[in-house]
Design a protein around this nucleic acid. Structure first.
Lengths: 130, 130
DNA sequence: ATAGACCCTGACACCAGTGTCAAGGTCAAC
DNA sequence: GTTGACCTTGACACTGGTGTCAGGGTCTAT
């Protein structure tokens, strides 16, 4: 199957398929005319790539274990678990940071509302002071 | 005061101060030799900018109301509240997305652990399936 | 007058995946 | 033999604040 066909089947753009290839994630054979020819299994591969991208992994990280998980159960691939762990930590750091921002935002919004109701009585809360 | 001095006082890099200027946030006067000359009040302004950046606002958004909040109480500036509201929504969207990713990650990690303990008995959970 | 600290502008790099355009080759059908 | 759909590579844009370098000007103190 050619690249347009694969794009249609997987819902991934032609541009992205070529990008995945440049990152070493897929390796279609080339026809005599230079066209990429994908095996029918490629659709599964692409869906797997999408899955890992959705987990927040980068193409580079995926490249490190994709070969293994395509042939084995994921649990068999030793590279995966440490990657998941560090990714989880990263996500948690981001969650913490976002939550902090959210709290500060809400505090400032509440402060403004108080000030408006109180007819400008209280002093301005000048900072969230991280 | 010149830019290096302001950088020292505020903890913001010279590079960033120039960037803020290019975004219309600060407007130092220029000396005959082309050097930027900042008023003593500039340090306060820069700290205010930092504050809003830490709330997740962009320089462009800050530019829209900075002038007002430097002269008035924040509650007086009508532009601020809607901005906070939409920013809060954005943050909440991101929180939701990150939380979803986190759950998927944890589920996959748990699945791998089960598989390893169970000596490869159960089938591979092939996807988080968004 | 020269060293050294400070200032200037302009530009590239980063993250990382995707959109999009240009300029051109291939192929099937009419 | 020409149209039109599909393929190729290469390149720039985007997000957005910051680091960093190049190449050069200014000022102060010795």
């Amino acid at each position: 199957m050619k690249i347009g066909e694969l794009a249609k089947r997987t819902g991934v753009s032609v541009r992205s398929l070529r990008y995945y290839e440049s990152q070493g994630l897929i390796s279609p054979v080339r026809l005599a005319n230079g066209y990429r020819e994908y095996s029918p299994l490629a659709a599964e591969t692409v869906k797997t790539i999408k899955l890992y991208l959705n987990l927040g992994l980068t193409t580079e990280e995926i490249a490190g274990f994709l070969h293994c998980v395509l042939k084995n159960k994921e649990a068999f691939c030793a590279e995966v678990m440490p990657l998941y762990e560090s990714k989880l930590e990263e996500i948690e750091r981001q969650l913490h940071q976002l939550t902090q921002i959210k709290l500060n935002l809400e505090e400032r919004m509440a402060s403004i509302r108080r000030e408006r109701e109180g007819s400008g009585a209280k002093a301005q809360t000048k900072a969230g002071e991280e």
